[in-house]
């Protein structure tokens, strides 16, 4: 039993990172109906910015993280402005292909800048070890990851539910034209959505680097794809769904590894995507809406 609980702990910590990225996927999809495949690369850039802040400028991680979030938010807005905005009224498939292009461009650009090799994250002695309950160890890293993720989710919920910006976001996601007619600045709202999503990805990137101690230009690709599966599983466009999907994917993945099928963990995750798409394409939290043809 303690073995099972231990695996769940690792699953939750891995799932937190998927959840943070899945939130960005879902927010952007909710508002512009675009699957932003470049989102995984924003995670990668967030990790690089933080590590360079720590190594090259010697700033503590408490400061490096917010700086990296701001940089990623600006980059997210920039990507939207350059790559997606000109295609706002084009068929959705054009924007989707552009998103794939942006994703490849960014990971190769970083390969060119920093080389393809894996870089080691500096050690944080304060995060070594964990709380021990009998046979179960809860690493400090896992606690930090979970707490930070929950703080992000709650903040996001408050922004979306209680603030004017959040109301504008909900309005744009329901009906872009009507929102515009009511005086909502649609372009600004979309920009803010990209900014928030990208800042969350930056947090995900830093947590990834802390948990797995290595960063490399293609780190966002597979992580991003799994987070996408999480977003679809929870119901794309639904914030709590993305969160739930992220945790579920993390747990499933770690249980697969913990119970003797490590080589199958990726296959299981993407198998889930196929099953969801076949059985309940709107996701666990999704409402069944008929697509107009």
């Amino acid at each position: 039993m303690s073995y099972f609980i231990q695996q769940i702990v690792y699953g939750l910590s891995a799932g937190s990172i998927y959840a943070l990225i899945a939130l960005g996927y879902t927010m952007v999809y909710g508002i512009v109906k675009l699957i932003n495949f470049a989102h995984g690369e924003v995670l990668m850039m967030g990790a690089y910015f933080t590590i360079f802040g720590i190594i090259s400028f010697n700033i503590p991680i408490i400061l490096a993280l917010p700086i990296s979030m701001v940089l990623c938010a600006l980059l997210g807005m920039f990507i939207d402005r350059v790559a997606y905005k000109p295609l706002r009224n084009a068929p959705r498939i054009s924007a989707l292909i552009t998103a794939l292009g942006v994703s490849m461009f960014l990971s190769n650009f970083f390969k060119l800048l920093f080389g393809a090799e894996k870089r080691k994250m500096p050690d944080f002695p304060a995060l070594k070890g964990g709380y021990v309950f009998g046979d179960v160890t809860i690493p400090y890293k896992a606690i930090l990851t979970l707490v930070l993720t929950l703080v992000c989710l709650i903040t996001l919920q408050i922004i979306v539910r209680k603030t004017k910006v959040g109301r504008a976001m909900r309005a744009v996601s329901e009906d872009k034209q009507a929102a515009q007619l009511m005086g909502v600045n649609v372009d600004l709202t979309i920009s803010i959505t990209f900014a928030i999503g990208s800042a969350l990805a930056a947090v995900g990137g830093v947590l990834y680097a802390i948990n797995y101690s290595q960063i490399f230009p293609t780190m966002g690709t597979l992580t991003g794809l799994k987070a996408f599966v999480a977003a679809v599983l929870g119901g794309i466009g639904i914030l709590p769904g993305a969160m739930f999907g992220g945790f579920l994917i993390g747990i499933v993945e770690n249980l697969t590894k913990g119970y003797g099928a490590g080589g199958w963990s990726n296959a299981v995750v993407f198998g889930i995507l196929i099953i969801v798409l076949l059985v309940k394409p709107e996701g666990i939290f999704g409402k069944n809406t008929r697509e107009k043809v």
Binding site: G11, Y212, N254, K257
Partner: peptide
């Protein structure tokens, strides 16, 4: 006692290592 495969993209080995420890 165990022969476990992983893929080149795997970064999380904690579950595998815990099972080997067990």
């Amino acid at each position: 006692v165990a022969k476990e495969g992983y893929t080149a993209d795997d970064v999380d080995f904690r579950s595998l290592l815990t099972s080997i420890k067990e």
